[in-house]
Computed example of a mutant assay.
Amino acid sequence: MARSAKTGRSNGPTLRDVAGRAGVSAMTVTRALRDDPRVSPETRERVLAAVAELGYRPNAVARSLRLGRASGLVGLVVTNLANPFYSRLALGLDSVVGEHGLKTVIGNTGQDLDAERDLVADLVTRRVDGIIAVPAEADQRHLAAAAAQGVPVVCASRPPSGFEADHVLVDDFGGAKDATERLIAQGHRRIGFLGPPAAVYTSTERLRGYHAALADAGLPADDRHVRQGAQDTADAAHAAAELLALHDPPTALFCSNNRNTIGAVRAAGPDVALAGFDDFELADMLGRALTIVAYDSDELGRAAGRLLVDRIHQTPESTAAPRRTVLPTRPLHYGG
């Protein structure tokens, strides 16, 4: 690791250090970090692995010289603009970055990893000042590459994977466990689970909380009562109908996001107890008992925005190790 001749303090790994670790030239490292098509996928993976192992971060001055004048734009990458959660996140983010003269550009990936890669690459090409991303999957090499090029990256709702970055999460495990425990306290012993695809971090964490509540109550976990994969209300309604058509159907459903809760409301009669994660408009007007795990989605955006602004402006706080913020949840009870 390079050291200052005057102070002896570590200056961090250099581009040449990364090249040496990956067994390539410094120029190849530069091209790999720019996603240059002349670099093979295998070589790019070696370079990104070396970047992650060494914790390489480009010099801020070099970044400004390379990127030129700042664009004044911040990219927000989300998975489903149809979900009101993301509009609240965007409003929270915009309220913070707007105070610093920055504007938010929003891109939707549709939970598609290839679309996310293309979108992130386009944002980097357009010289955004930073990126807030809700990653679609655990494969985040494109985000790691953007960060390695000196573009500040903050992950929201889902943590970084394969690289280090500031991130803001919700207490997914704790909120799901609490909601499931409330259904158990009502006397339910067969509780179904509805959630988005298993590759989604929040779905996995909320399923883990659901299982933990069952285990603590001495109840068996029945895989037949779990449905993961629904991304819209129609799919969720179909999944809920499947569960309720079983020979021994659940008497209650825990729905791990608002799209699944709305789908379950459409499919389940009033005799089926419902608990869901994420509040949504008109939840209090449904005329049925409903427990919701709520949190401040605007604050999720604001917290991510504050972390990003720190990195963009190179504040003293941003020189520390990547920071993790976890927002608390609270139960809401509607109807009955």
Rank of each mutant, 00 (worst) to 15 (best):
T43D: 10
G229V: 04
L73I: 06
L91R: 08
E164M: 12
Q314F: 10
N83G: 10
G107L: 11
S25G: 05
A32T: 04
D298K: 07
P37L: 08
A283V: 09
D278T: 06
S25V: 03
T43H: 10
E137R: 02
V77Y: 00
L246M: 11
A289R: 14
H238I: 09
L244P: 10
R224S: 15
V105D: 15
N11P: 01
A19E: 13
A62L: 02
I312V: 14
L286V: 04
L308N: 12
N108W: 11
S87F: 09
A146N: 01
E242D: 09
Y334W: 13
A252P: 10
L194E: 06
A268L: 11
A165W: 07
R57G: 05
G287I: 07
I191C: 04
P160S: 04
L243S: 02
V226L: 14
L214I: 11
P249K: 01
A90K: 10
Y295P: 15
R88S: 12
H211M: 13
S25I: 01
A234M: 13
L48T: 01
E242S: 00
V105I: 13
R224C: 05
T30N: 12
A60T: 11
I184Q: 08
V154W: 03
R57F: 00
I131M: 04
V153Y: 02
G75T: 02
P322M: 05
P197R: 03
F85G: 10
L332Q: 00
V168G: 08
S157L: 15
A303M: 11
T104W: 02
G269F: 13
L207D: 06
A294P: 13
R141M: 02
V47S: 08
V293W: 14
R189P: 03
V29L: 06
A49Y: 01
A275L: 01
A241T: 08
A221E: 14
S4T: 03
F173M: 02
D94Y: 06
Q140L: 00
A5T: 14
T329E: 00
P331Q: 00
I262Q: 15
F193Y: 14
R190W: 03
N108I: 12
T28W: 06
H313C: 09
A213F: 12
G101L: 09
T329N: 01
A304S: 15
G335I: 09
V78D: 12
A264Q: 10
V293C: 15
G150I: 01
L89Q: 05
A217H: 08
A144H: 01
G335P: 11
Q111R: 05
V272L: 13
A70D: 05
A267V: 05
R117H: 12
Q111P: 04
V97F: 06
H238D: 15
E137A: 05
V134D: 07
Y56H: 02
T329I: 08
A165K: 07
